[in-house]
């Protein structure tokens, strides 16, 4: 009897020990006590050069030099929700794509083939997302002599914002005409040095990222200067959702609330893929943050 009691005691002690957990103290671990609030969820895409990406009704579209099963070429690609490649399109109609945006009905792709026209070097390819083909409607921006690299759409007023080096064109997709051009080269408020990205806020205002001046300028939907946010680090693309701006940089992703100024840094910790170490294109969508690197898109979520 004593031996049985001793044996049971030992087994109980071992069971208790086996159930003793280690502390979970990893800020990127969602189950940790010190969880930072955002964590790495995975990677989307396989690119030789990722230029831009965006969402159309929850579906991700990306443009750039894409590695496909048939080779590497300029292409438009879309992905399943698990990050795997769904569909890609390559054509002479898609030449040097640099920007992509959607108003929920159409995709707008900027193609900056310098051989197209020295006078009109940027084409806007307009696609129905359900039918991306060579028959895309081409809408030439009526602005001579300047490349347009990035674009953003305000579905409420059909405005397509096209950013160049130091100006922004407002293009009415419904009227197929240029509405206005705002900005100019310079350092004063409302002026630009080297625009890298452009986004439309939920309230319709337009954010213009300018790493050359280390700031993000905020304009009204019609291009009136409103305010600016100083960004004291090297950056390129920005993403926006729910009054928060997400900015990838060499030291992680900065989250800045542009209404309160509150800031948070994540994707800045540890060893592995869940670390962002360079500026690049960025989107925020559905509570998740997508940060583009040269070869893939890293996904972070709460």
């Amino acid at each position: 009897m004593k031996k049985i009691i001793c044996l049971l005691t030992v087994i109980a002690a071992m069971a208790a020990v086996s159930c003793t957990p280690l502390d979970r103290t990893n800020p990127t671990d969602p189950a940790a006590d010190n969880y930072a609030g955002m964590h790495y969820m995975g990677t989307i895409g396989d690119f030789t050069q990722l230029n831009d990406f965006g969402f159309e009704n929850g579906t991700m579209w990306a443009v750039g030099i894409i590695n496909t099963p048939s080779g590497t070429s300029d292409a438009i690609a879309t992905y399943f929700s698990d990050g795997s490649l769904n569909y890609f399109f390559t054509s002479t109609a898609i030449s040097a794509p640099t920007g992509i945006a959607s108003d929920g009905t159409y995709l707008y792709v900027l193609c900056t083939d310098p051989y197209t026209s020295a006078y009109n070097p940027t084409d806007i390819k307009k696609f129905s997302p359900s039918y991306v083909s060579d028959t895309a409607m081409t809408q030439p921006p009526n602005y001579a002599g300047e490349y347009r690299y990035k674009c953003a759409v305000n579905a409420a007023n059909n405005y397509l914002y096209l950013s160049g080096a130091d100006t922004v064109m407002i293009f009415d997709t419904a009227a197929n005409s240029t509405v206005a051009v705002f900005g100019s080269g310079g350092t004063a408020d409302g002026q630009f040095s080297a625009i890298s990205d452009i986004e439309v806020c939920p309230d319709g205002n337009v954010l213009v990222a300018d790493p050359g001046l280390n700031r993000i300028s905020i304009f009204s939907p019609t291009g009136t200067y409103m305010s600016k946010i100083d960004i004291p680090f090297t950056f390129s693309g920005v993403g926006i959702e729910d009054n928060s701006i997400y900015i990838p940089s060499s030291d992680g992703i900065h989250k800045i609330r542009y209404d309160t100024g509150e800031s948070l840094l994540f994707a800045d910790y540890g060893d592995g893929n869940g670390k962002v170490m360079q500026a690049g294109p960025c989107e925020a969508h559905g509570g998740r943050v997508y940060a583009g690197t040269a070869s893939a898109i890293k996904v972070f979520g709460p």
């Binding site: 990893n26 189950a31 964590h39």
Partner: peptide, 11 residues
């Protein structure tokens, strides 16, 4: 502690 992915396996 240093991992920023696959925490469950490492833990």
């Amino acid at each position: 502690v240093r991992a920023n992915e696959n925490w469950e396996i490492a833990y």
